[in-house]
Design a protein around this nucleic acid. Structure first.
Lengths: 208, 208
DNA sequence: ATGAAAATCCCTGTTTTGGGGGAGAACAAC
DNA sequence: GTTGTTCTCCCCCAAAACAGGGATTTTCAT
């Protein structure tokens, strides 16, 4: 491995973004070219900067990781894309591969696993971290999750944490009305009638 | 394999109970000795009937599959126990093994997978279905889920489906007050303040 | 620079939850 | 035969969520 491979990380959770990039910083053969909170922010950068690999969260606001991967492969076919998710869902892995991706890993993979996965992918391979090297069981998930904006996702998470509209409003420095609007939009996007159903749907789609 | 191995299935979802036993009925070397909705119902049967293997759901009401396994191994150490869950959580598998179990599988495993898993276990092996042959990542789940009664679990599921107390009451032919009580008990057992947090916790523990 | 989408805010209601109690019947366990 | 748990049901009252509109500003892509 002569020159360092340039990679971009996309995840809307700052913790993951920082964590992963710190983890990878220890490897001299990896160079973090950029970190982004969403696909829409990353795309322009990718267009003008040549990178070797993108590691992207699957559950992103606006457009999800699978779509993002598809988009990247359309425009920039030589960029390798690796999906990432909190959940051990083989269907994610399969969809990533179908979308032209080169791999998939769960966020709880060990440093070594991630290292060897990136190494393998950078050499042209396709890799899925050991936890889910499966392919048969399809489960749900072909039913794609509704598209939620980043603000909605933020609110969604806080709702799931048990905060009331007022508490969320205080934390985000906006009015209760705003949170109420977001909540209504979420209910309508998920086509459910109350919070309980909203959260269970969101959980099912791994959006929390 | 000379004589059929006797096995008992424990799952609080009738659908799974029936589905699995039908699936296994096609194998002449497997004999279904009993089917139960909960560990508490199965235990007396196991004490008086000699069986070779128990396949049990992890998320059972009253006492969960892990505890159940531990109990079985205490009293009837020669019975092999295989855990089962809807969710691909390696932590489940690990805890099953730690509790003296012989294997773990997800409910979406294929017939062949289940067949070979049971066969392997019956021959003294330890088997985990391919999707999660992992061991390192721990995740949560050492924090065990609260113990919910079967009625509470029933109500919990309906809440997650988005039904209101009134609708649940109608469906279960009890009064709204009753459902309200169950709901309050659930909130207190999960130590949360509202439905949103309840459902997200429940989802996290795979109780839905 | 124009338009679309997102994010912000407001109003008026009704319905549903949540908090804090208490209480009896059925059942199994010890 | 007493104890403990589950399941059932009730009260009152406050708080939060839901439904149905409408409206303004910011942002960003073309």
């Amino acid at each position: 491995m002569n020159k360092a491979i340039k990679l971009v990380i996309v995840d809307d959770h700052p913790v993951v973004l920082e964590g992963l990039s710190n983890m990878l910083a220890q490897f001299s053969w990896i160079e973090i070219s950029g970190k982004f909170n969403s696909a829409l922010e990353a795309m322009p950068f990718l267009r003008k900067t040549k990178v070797d690999m993108v590691i992207t969260d699957i559950n992103l606001p606006e457009i999800n990781g699978i779509e993002f991967c598809r988009k990247i492969k359309e425009e920039l076919s030589d960029v390798r894309v690796v999906g990432m998710s909190t959940f051990h869902d083989p269907a994610y892995a399969r969809e990533m591969i179908l979308a032209g991706g080169s791999g998939f890993m769960t966020k709880n993979a060990s440093t070594q696993e991630i290292e060897s996965l990136i190494s393998l992918v950078s050499e042209g391979g396709i890799a899925v971290n050991p936890m889910l090297k499966e392919e048969k069981p399809l489960r749900f998930l072909s039913e794609q999750a509704p598209i939620v904006t980043r603000r909605e996702k933020e609110v969604l998470s806080l709702i799931a944490d048990g905060l009331t509209n007022k508490e969320i409003a205080d934390r985000l420095f906006v009015s209760i009305s705003t949170i109420d609007s977001h909540r209504k939009n979420l209910l309508s996007k998920f086509q459910v009638l109350n919070t309980a159903a909203l959260i269970s749907q969101a959980a099912k789609h791994g959006l929390l």
